[in-house]
């Protein structure tokens, strides 16, 4: 059985003007089935680039990213993946139901399944009863909630969530945390990036830290607990990044 996520010596660069910028360098990690893994790093550290390479949006210069044993660019690997992008403004002229129908159908769901799952998914993210609303009337926080609903619509085995709590108010963050706990208990594999380190600390079995494109530390839950007795994850993260920089 292949691990849901395998990243091996991945290097990704992109063009900025006439220069090529290396965003991720020689990154390797694995996420096992049922694990909840947090991916943390400063702005521009390479979190989103790694996730985009994993989803097949960006191409590797070296190394490989695999989903369920398939190369990132193979669409079949994404069959069991729910993905939340960092920020998205969903089609303003569509209704919430139509959007979820689009994504659900593309994920292979039948109309009968969608009829049940759309209200349930919207309810799950606190948007119950908004099925018929045009998306241009949705606030940023509601768009983020809708983004989570679209990631969950096909009940995927693996969730990849980029900047999960971006745009959410404290209540939204609390609801999201409860939802992630429930999903973890259901046995889903979760891989997410976040700047909310308390969220990462409370949810994850393991934390992967990235700095300047390189994976600088992997911390298991036991180590996290030990850290928690001495210092917060936040100060541990800041010290680790500073050590790397020095």
């Amino acid at each position: 059985m292949n691990a849901p996520i395998e990243v091996e010596q991945l290097s990704v660069s992109y063009a900025r003007g006439t220069k090529r910028v290396t965003a991720v360098q020689d990154a390797s990690f694995t996420v096992a089935e049922g694990e909840c893994v947090g991916f943390i790093g400063a702005n521009g550290a390479g979190k989103s680039t790694t996730i985009k390479a994993l989803m097949g949006f960006l191409f590797a210069d070296q190394g490989e990213a695999r989903l369920f044993g398939r190369p990132a660019k193979d669409p079949k690997g994404r069959q069991q993946v729910g993905y939340l992008p960092e920020v998205a403004l969903y089609y303003p002229y569509m209704r919430a139901r139509e959007l979820l129908t689009l994504y659900g159908t593309l994920s292979g769901l039948k109309t009968a399944d969608l009829r049940q799952r759309i209200p349930a998914a919207l309810e799950q993210v606190g948007l119950g009863g908004r099925e018929k609303d045009l998306l241009r009337t949705f606030s940023k926080g509601m768009q983020q909630r809708l983004g989570i609903a679209q990631a969950l619509i096909a009940q995927p085995a693996l969730l990849i969530l980029d900047e999960i709590s971006s745009g959410l108010d404290p209540l939204g963050r609390y609801d999201l945390r409860q939802l992630l706990i429930k999903l973890r208990e259901e046995g889903r594999t979760i891989f997410f990036s976040s700047h909310e380190l308390s969220e990462v600390e409370s949810l994850c079995d393991r934390v992967i830290m990235i700095d300047q494109g390189r994976i600088c530390k992997e911390v298991t839950q036991r180590e996290l607990q030990a850290i928690g007795q001495q210092q917060s994850l936040e100060s541990f993260f800041i010290n680790t990044v500073r050590e790397e920089t020095d």
């Binding site: 669409p75 939340l84 403004l89 969903y90």
Partner: peptide, 14 residues
């Protein structure tokens, strides 16, 4: 521009 390509291509779609 709206970054909706990402959730679209996150599906098993070529």
């Amino acid at each position: 521009e709206n970054r909706t390509l990402y959730p679209l291509l996150a599906r098993p779609v070529a």
